[in-house]
């Protein structure tokens, strides 16, 4: 220890922990890409011949809806919040469209579903922004409300039946030439919009400012409640879009379809380097985080591990990675 401290310059840069910590802190996306490559190599070693262009396409297709859900977590976490209602909201939108497609039509269904999602987000935003309810409790309560209402809707729609619309199936599950997933048509604009909003607009700056130092932000004249209301509406609408992709990908209309993606969406954002305390992170890392989780999932299921192991592993990863980031950022 003391030797390392007294003569740091005798070691090459790649061997100094501080240099790694610096890299981790400034550009988390580089080590994340390294981890992703390692995982891909690991998959090929464990299951020779599994890695192919088609495999890559399938991975990307599975990661896209997760990455959109994780965008909700990234944006809310930047302000020190979290949105645990995304699972219920996404399931609800997919289900609502599936019940409306045979009656009022696809586009009406999409409009109704997104409007319902926006209302849920609006109430979340009012609770968090105006009433200062802890985001976690507000959004957990909202997920109960949304799930309950979706169940009521399900009972009301028993006669009509539900079917996932063709368009969702084509966009959610289809692949061009078996390599490029159609869902990129949705994902690329969404991701570009999120990246530009966070990095290049005043609104994005406000999100970072509120999360970094709420008092300073208020003294600088930021009306946090307005920013938060808009934020939670955006989050719910993004979750709604992800819900369309999930229902198309799995060809299932269920009010609990996306629940199992809730923890991975938080995990993707945390692994991607976004701090749950707010003020630090970005969407680029989150996208890689979603890809990493998807590859790990597929590796686990190809090895025949049950769902339980995946849950334990993801939960442990969140604690471990959050602790690592906390350590790295406290060192400075």
């Amino acid at each position: 220890m003391s030797v390392a401290e007294t003569t740091p310059e005798t070691r090459p840069a790649w061997f100094r922990p501080a240099a790694w910590a610096n890299l981790f802190r400034e550009r988390p996306i580089v080590p994340l890409l390294v981890i992703l490559v390692v995982l891909v190599v690991l998959s090929e070693v464990i299951r020779p011949g599994i890695v192919s262009l088609n495999w890559a396409g399938v991975m990307v297709r599975a990661a896209i809806p997760l990455a959109i859900l994780a965008a909700c977590q990234t944006m809310t976490m930047l302000t020190g919040g979290i949105d645990l209602s995304v699972g219920a909201v996404a399931s609800m939108t997919g289900f609502v469209v599936a019940t409306l497609v045979n009656g009022p039509g696809l586009w009406t269904g999409i409009a109704v579903a997104l409007a319902a999602a926006a209302v849920a987000g609006l109430i979340n935003g009012i609770g968090v922004g105006v009433f200062r309810v802890h985001p976690l409790i507000m959004t957990l309560g909202m997920s109960l409300v949304v799930l309950g209402l979706a169940n009521v809707w399900q009972l009301a729609m028993v006669q009509t039946g539900a079917g996932v619309p063709d368009l969702f199936r084509r966009v959610g599950a289809g692949m061009v030439a078996g390599v490029i997933p159609y869902s990129l048509v949705v994902f690329v604009p969404v991701a570009a919009w999120v990246l530009v909003t966070l990095n290049r607009t005043g609104y994005g700056r406000l999100l970072y400012a509120i999360g970094d130092n709420p008092v300073a932000a208020r003294l600088a004249g930021v009306k946090a409640w307005q920013v938060l209301i808009v934020l939670y509406v955006i989050s719910a609408v993004l979750a709604g879009i992800a819900g369309f992709l999930y229902s198309g990908l799995t060809n299932v209309a269920s009010v609990t379809l996306v629940d199992s993606a809730l923890l991975p969406s938080v995990a993707a954002a945390v692994i991607g380097g976004t701090s749950i305390l707010g003020g630090r992170g970005g969407y680029g890392g989150t996208i890689i985080g979603a890809l990493i989780l998807t590859v790990i999932s597929s590796l686990l299921s190809s090895l025949g591990y049950p769902e339980a192991v995946r849950q334990i592993l993801f939960g442990s990863m969140i604690v471990f990675v959050a602790a690592a980031y906390a350590r790295v950022t406290n060192e400075s």
Partner: peptide, 24 residues
Amino acid sequence: VVTRVPDIVVTLAMLFVWAGCALL
């Protein structure tokens, strides 16, 4: 205490760890 990660995050993660153990 050891990781200094907020209570909410750690116990949210442990929610899934313990539920996974129960399924095992």
